[in-house]
Design a protein around this nucleic acid. Structure first.
Lengths: 168, 168
DNA sequence: TTGTTAATTAGCATGACTTGCTAATTAGGG
DNA sequence: CCCTAATTAGCAAGTCATGCTAATTAACAA
């Protein structure tokens, strides 16, 4: 995502109004590598601008995504994540603290010959699961700070499957 | 997933009742590589057993997943997919017809040194996007048979992002 | 400054997907 | 064949996100 100043320029050019709400979000998203949800942005924004509506957050995020300034990341953890990092990168999900980190890979995975005859691959998404450096340090117990309010269900079962894979 | 006969055995051992509903689902899932949703299984099951409830479908799928007979696959397309193929494999999503195919990769993607110092990777998920062989054949136009009823929203925007990546 | 028009807000309804709850039914061992 | 635990159906509820309306506000241009 471009800087708030550049975005202001872009919005002006597109005849979109530079409202305080939008500017606030530009600031909150700029250089933000925490992969926030709409809800978490709403909470933070509300502190600086009480009364701002969740609807406006969704609207602005949607606009930025349409403009190619934001990447939408759905890791199946309940809510959509917003990633201002538009460079090519992949994601690492910590099974302990739930944090999502941007990572790079040495080379794109390739299909094994014969497993997809005639398939044209155009995009590859990779998600790593494991433990991030912080959670990997000794003294650090299992935290399981799930940052989703979703009730346990298929999502939880899937996470359980991942955890089983992790503990192998 | 094991065969219906083997599953029957397992259920008996676990003192779980072998109801017609469960047996029907065993059959529908056995060797099923279509990555069905709960809803689509419900529709098929309803034809053979009118009156069966969607709740029962979810329940039985959940039980099978807990027993390690099913893999849950969330590709961010709205609904959870159920995959009886428990072998290690990855997925290919056709951007044209929406089909999901099982594929293999030659080697697991590796983190680039420095991009995740101290991270312990334990599981890697890879999703390919592109066009499957059928849609890739000449004569075959854009189909966009989205098999989700979800209203256009973030999900749709994400798909749009993928399609843009595909058309580069 | 004023006018135009877009943007925001509030509030509620909807929609998709999944789970929770409860009462009624059923399977299968004795 | 009966009994009891397990299963099922059916509906309500919960989460995330969007649609819609009407009223208000505020940005920008003239």
């Amino acid at each position: 995502m471009r800087s708030p100043t550049e975005l202001a320029q872009v919005f002006r050019e597109k005849q979109l109004k530079l409202t305080p709400q939008r500017q606030l979000l530009f600031g909150l998203l700029h250089d933000n590598d925490s992969h926030p949800t709409a809800e978490s942005l709403f909470e933070i924004a509300s502190k600086q601008m009480p009364g701002i509506s969740l609807r406006t957050i969704y609207q602005t995020l949607g606009e930025l995504a349409d403009m190619g300034e934001l990447q939408l990341v759905d890791l199946g953890n309940g809510a959509m994540r917003f990633d201002p990092n538009m460079g090519e990168h992949q994601h690492f999900v910590c099974g302990s603290c739930g944090a999502i980190h941007d990572v790079d890979i040495t080379s794109a995975p390739k299909l094994r010959a014969g497993s997809a005859e005639g398939f044209a691959v155009e995009e590859v998404g990779v998600v790593f699961h494991g433990r991030c450096d912080r959670c990997n340090r000794p003294s650090h117990g299992e935290q399981i700070s799930r940052n989703t309010k979703r009730s346990p269900g298929l999502q939880a079962k899937k996470i359980k499957q991942v955890k089983q894979a992790i503990s192998n």
